[in-house]
């Protein structure tokens, strides 16, 4: 590294320390740029893949009200993916390149979406737990150092506010319903609880990126801090529903002022991250299929636009 670059890096860090926003055309260390492309696109991919488990239930939603709510929610996720891809594109990469990275398996996305949505109650659990966990991350990211990312997150948080409520309302209705419905709700909580805790990522001492991310204010809280916050706010919500959190070790710790909770199955976590979860292959296959079947459509639109342009030019000439 030359002296000039060292100075630039120091100035850059000083800007971040002063809570200044970094904008697309500003000088930034190559690693900052790459880390952001990775994180923002990972986030975007999660939105897009996240459409699939819920999309699976749109055609079977049990009432018209539930159907339009779910449809609007899944549509929002497409929008959020779009905002995030746009933010990543400001860093000098195209959406097609990012899409290619997702399809080839080079890019990751949130592992939670590799779990299947098996019953209608899963629409409740996903909205309540998965969106609940996601929102905690997202609220933090509205103050992240990279301007386009932070602005995308502001818009996303505004729109997301109905998602978790939508999910919790489904759970509430089930828990007030028949015994069978309550069973469905408990079963969904059982299946989604642990994967939701895994959403916050590896433990801090095993998370290679945390320290740098905190320094650059991409993250303002560590994985473990956010996970604890999630458990603390979610357990009372489960109690309100009359459901049991599937963790025998879960206990309020008066001294810490937090819930203690059991060990996450990290073997399962890494297995799913590495592509061997229940639905990894199905999810990527579905994305690739949509993309490949859409290719002729995208080509047609570009070709039509070119034809139109050349006709206009001919007229002008």
């Amino acid at each position: 590294m030359t002296q000039k670059e060292i100075n630039l890096e120091e100035q850059f860090q000083a800007r971040i320390d002063r809570d200044e926003s970094i904008e697309a055309k500003d000088w930034m260390p190559e690693k900052y740029r790459k880390t952001h492309i990775r994180q923002i696109s990972q986030h975007a991919h999660s939105e897009i893949v996240g459409m699939l488990p819920e999309g699976n239930w749109i055609t079977r939603a049990p009432s018209l009200r539930r159907k339009v709510a779910l449809l609007a929610k899944v549509q929002d996720e497409a929008g959020h993916g779009l905002y995030l891809y746009s933010a990543a594109e400001t860093l000098g990469i195209t959406r097609d390149e990012l899409t290619e990275q997702l399809h080839s398996g080079k890019a990751k996305y949130s592992s939670i979406f590799n779990y299947p949505a098996l019953t209608w109650a899963d629409m409740g659990a996903i909205g309540w737990l998965v969106d609940g966990a996601a929102i905690m991350n997202q609220v933090m990211l509205t103050r992240t150092s990279y301007g386009p990312y932070a602005r995308a997150m502001v818009r996303i948080c505004k729109e997301e506010s109905f998602h978790q409520r939508q999910g919790y309302e489904i759970m509430l209705t089930l828990c007030k319903g028949t015994a069978l419905q309550k069973e469905l709700a408990q079963d969904a909580l059982n299946r989604f609880w642990w994967p939701s805790l895994m959403m916050f990522g590896p433990k801090d001492d095993e998370s290679p990126n945390t320290e740098q991310s905190v320094k650059w204010k991409i993250k303002r809280k560590t994985n473990d801090e956010l996970r604890q916050q999630f458990v603390d706010q979610t357990v009372p919500q489960a109690e309100f529903l009359g459901l049991t959190v599937p963790d025998p070790a879960l206990k309020w710790n008066e001294e810490r002022g937090h819930y203690d909770f059991g060990d996450i199955d990290w073997d399962e976590f890494w297995q799913v991250v590495k592509g061997h979860g229940p639905c990894n292959k199905e999810r990527i296959d579905a994305r690739v299929k949509a993309w490949e079947e859409g290719e002729w459509v995208r080509d047609a639109a570009v070709t039509h636009a070119e034809k139109k342009d050349s006709r206009t030019e001919q007229k002008v000439a």
Partner: peptide
């Protein structure tokens, strides 16, 4: 609504879902 999440790209996916939502609104 079957197409939601499977459109040729994000913009078109979102647009067609809007059509679907309009239609369900009328149904109601």
């Amino acid at each position: 609504s079957e197409l939601c999440g499977h459109g040729p790209n994000l913009e078109t996916d979102i647009a067609l879902t809007n059509h679907s939502l309009d239609l369900f609104g009328q149904v109601r």
